[in-house]
């Protein structure tokens, strides 16, 4: 009888203790999926859209998830030339800059980036000044869907 008296509150305590689980509802910013095959959607120079006047149709930038890149078909100034190397961002969740290190050369080249979503697809825009510092280019990329 005494055992029963002890067990009843113990069981009740266990039931109360397990009835609520503390759930932490923490929102995490998704890691931006930059690894993709990108092509140029839009080109601006000093805020003026010049897309229709430049030859950007063949530009293909592959950012692989092992942090290597391949650039081909480039007919307009970019951070790096056609070829391969490695890429990195300053922060996978809130990337502000994208850095390229070509395999065949010294140094690294960085541009500031934004990753807005357009029509449900993530786009990538890179802002940089390959020539005079007074000239700012923004290339906006879209993913090539195969």
């Amino acid at each position: 009888m005494l055992v029963q008296k002890i067990w009843l509150p113990v069981i009740l305590m266990v039931l109360v203790g397990t009835s609520c689980t503390i759930k932490k509802d923490v929102y995490t910013e998704p890691v931006k999926d930059l690894d993709a095959l990108w092509r140029i959607q839009n080109v601006t120079r000093n805020s003026v859209d010049i897309t229709q006047f430049v030859d950007s149709a063949g530009f293909r930038l592959t950012l692989s998830n092992d942090n290597t890149y391949t650039l081909s078909g480039n007919n307009i100034p970019f951070l790096v030339s056609d070829g391969t190397g490695t890429w990195s961002t300053d922060d996978p969740q809130y990337p502000y800059s994208l850095t390229f290190k070509p395999t065949d050369g010294a140094g690294s080249f960085a541009g500031s980036i934004a990753t807005p979503a357009s029509k449900g697809e993530r786009t990538l825009s890179i802002t940089f000044s390959p020539g005079c510092r007074s000239n700012t280019y923004i290339y906006t990329f879209e993913k090539v869907t195969q």
Binding site: R45, I76, P77, P130, G131, C132, N135
Partner: peptide
Amino acid sequence: PAGATENDI
């Protein structure tokens, strides 16, 4: 633009 290098458009 008025100011440019060979690596501009």
